[in-house]
């Protein structure tokens, strides 16, 4: 066992500050401007060879409002699932909150 590993851990625990940021119901993305992928990234897929990215990012080819939307252009090879997710959020799952949006499947 390497004792220094444990010491490193405690330094991290102590230095991190335990008070987590409070949750917030504010979330909105319209993909306008120079956002690029806007914090979106590959989250999980069934295997290493599940999919290939042709393009993922802000695009002016289609938009529900404004001039841009977020475009996903993927080619699949095998497997059964492939998920892309937003930036990390902390939206409280209480009250009457809803996530709404628009999707266009070409």
């Amino acid at each position: 066992m390497k004792t220094h590993v444990s010491i490193v851990l405690l330094v991290l625990l102590g230095g991190m500050g335990l008070y987590a940021a409070p949750p917030s119901p504010n979330y909105q993305q319209d993909f306008e401007g120079e956002e690029g992928m806007s914090g979106w990234k590959a989250w999980a897929q069934s295997g290493e060879n599940t999919s290939e990215v042709n393009f993922v990012g802000s695009s002016s080819e289609k938009s529900h409002s404004g001039k841009q939307s977020l475009k996903f252009d993927l080619t699949f090879h095998e497997g059964s699932y492939c998920y892309w997710s937003s930036q990390a959020l902390k939206i409280p799952a209480t009250g009457d909150l809803k996530l709404i949006g628009y999707i266009y499947v070409e």
């Binding site: 119901p25 504010n26 979330y27 909105q28 993305q29 319209d30 993909f31 989250w43 599940t50 999919s51 042709n54 695009s59 080819e61 289609k62 938009s63 529900h64 409002s65 404004g66 841009q68 939307s69 977020l70 475009k71 996903f72 252009d73 993927l74 080619t75 699949f76 090879h77 095998e78 497997g79 059964s80 699932y81 492939c82 998920y83 892309w84 997710s85 937003s86 930036q87 990390a88 959020l89 939206i91 909150l97 809803k98 996530l99 709404i100 949006g101 628009y102 999707i103 266009y104 499947v105 070409e106």
Partner: peptide, 25 residues
């Protein structure tokens, strides 16, 4: 997180083009 989820038995070479916009809570 919110996510876009592709599911099902993928066929080799199968392509998907999807746009999303105006996401909001």
């Amino acid at each position: 997180r919110v996510a876009l989820m592709f599911r099902g038995k993928f066929q080799p070479g199968q392509r998907a083009v999807v746009y999303v916009d105006d996401l909001k809570v």
